[in-house]
Nucleic acid binder design. Structure first.
Lengths: 294, 294
DNA sequence: ATTGTACCATTAGATTTTCTTGCGCTTCCC
DNA sequence: GGGAAGCGCAAGAAAATCTAATGGTACAAT
């Protein structure tokens, strides 16, 4: 009878406190303060009309009743964990759900996933480009300026913007002026676009309203790889293509943008081990940066 | 491993939907909208990386995986319910926690508890005078004007205020002027006090700053029963004493106050069966009144 | 073919639940 | 005597949950 069941979060707090022998220990396991645990257990006792712990100034002790209840709850939670592990098919592994731009996921994270898996075999990643609403994902990676409200923002990558194309396409590009006669590939949505770059290198008279436009960088990258034009690329998303020679930078001028890629998580989520582990791994994979609390 | 466990409320929503075969059915059982169930299950599937339901425009169908998972979760929740029933010692009975003024609990509810228990044998009551903070109690009974924010208020009792004392004490009280030479018993905190009543009956010159003062009506009632003075009593709290003759009203003038006793619950709590049952019972026990949404 | 009903999906914002913070207290150890 | 550890409490902040509104589809009834 669901309606006689106490709130499950209270039971979770109680079971953890009983198993670990302290509110402080339970708080550490559940990533909350001991005060939160105390309030849950107090509420549970109010609801049940029974004392589960004897209170002492230097710690709590389970009552006999509390110990029996905790044992049974422990078995129930064990069943839940086993069922979840069986259904998810990952044993003691856990899922980390991250909201990431498609291009960053494909171009930057996917090529390194083997490294993450090797160093964190118990964490499965789910990268989603969709917005699932508040609290449904564990963390996010966003491009911007780091000033998101209510999120801890950790700087991952500063980007540089510069033209790229195939080596063959580059043969006819000796100076930026040569872009006039070529197809420009655009990915709108950033402050740095063809106008910005051309102004940066002091070239005028090129029609930047022409060319092909893509909603996502990865589409433009693919078009460039297929030799369909010159893409205004960004470092983070094409470093493998540059390294392999699939794409080259026909000019050496690069534009340092104001935006960067940031790792975002709410303070509560940021404290969970899997989020911490992923963030630290990302930081290891990128240049040293300082975390900026937003 | 607690950290790989999905949020328990998501599991609860999923298990109910699976067992009842619809999101609408699960919503009805858990007193939430089907939309809430839908969002929880979607989030769970995101977290697990597995589909638990096949979606159809006219309803959902469990996948095989979903059915297996729901069966195991059902067993776990069954363990939780059994353990809770064993510890609480009330089988399928459930606890209703109500925040009530001490005097109202003792003087009005307690004398009728047998009637409530007889008509609702599956609901145990816990009456508490303490404030346990938001969301820790299921409902409240308060004295006031019915304008609490965010609470559904149902009028229970309008009160009348008038002097009461023992029959023996009343022998020397032929008119309100006779109160001048007697001990007044006060329960401060109401708009209607001795000053108000005396003004109401047109009597002046009685020192209402003298006498004994009690923080709770039940103390004053006991003092009156012990013949220690004349209490300015209120209908709801002394009807049994009046009926038994322990206390009498030496004068017939009664003061209709502005305040009343109200039954309060948040809209969410108000929808739960046990809260509904208790409120309806209270209404049956009191004069017919109209519910006022606050 | 049309209409009504039932159900679920999605998004934005409201509400509720949960949690943190700050402070206070006690016990125990050094 | 002082420091460390632990829990309690209340107020307010943060997070989680939920509702409302709208839209869509399938199916049954007409």
């Amino acid at each position: 009878m669901a309606s006689a069941r106490p709130p499950l979060n209270w039971l979770r707090a109680f079971e953890a406190a009983a198993r670990l022998g302290s509110f402080a220990g339970a708080g550490a396991e559940l990533n909350v303060t001991p005060s939160a645990i105390s309030q849950h257990i107090r509420a549970l006792e109010l609801r049940l009309g029974k004392e589960l712990f004897d209170r002492h100034a230097n710690g709590v002790r389970l009552t006999d009743r509390g110990r029996r209840y905790a044992e049974e709850l422990g078995r129930a939670f064990g069943l839940i964990d086993e069922a979840t592990a069986r259904i998810a098919g990952r044993g003691t592994r856990e899922m980390l759900v991250v909201h990431v731009p498609t291009s960053f996921a494909s171009q930057w994270i996917a090529p390194r996933l083997d490294l993450f898996r090797a160093s964190h075999p118990t964490i499965d990643l789910r990268l989603t480009a969709l917005d699932h609403g508040e609290g449904k994902v564990d963390a996010a990676i966003e491009f911007g300026w780091g000033n998101w409200p209510k999120r801890e923002a950790t700087l991952l990558l500063r980007d540089e913007t510069f033209p790229v194309c195939t080596p063959k396409y580059a043969e006819s590009l000796n100076s930026p002026e040569d872009l006039r006669a070529r197809d420009l590939l655009h990915v709108p949505g950033y402050d740095e676009d063809w106008d910005t770059w051309l102004a940066h290198v002091g070239v005028t008279g090129i029609d930047t309203s022409a060319g092909s436009f893509f909603d996502q960088s990865i589409m433009g990258i693919r078009a460039a790889i297929e030799g369909k034009g010159v893409l205004l690329g960004r470092t983070a998303l094409i470093e493998r293509e540059l390294a392999s020679g699939l794409l080259v930078a026909p000019f050496e001028q690069r534009l340092r943008g104001a935006g960067s890629y940031w790792f975002l998580a709410t303070p509560q989520k940021a404290r969970t081990p899997k989020v911490t582990a992923f963030r630290d791994w990302l930081l290891n994979m990128t240049a040293p940066v300082a975390a900026v609390g937003a």
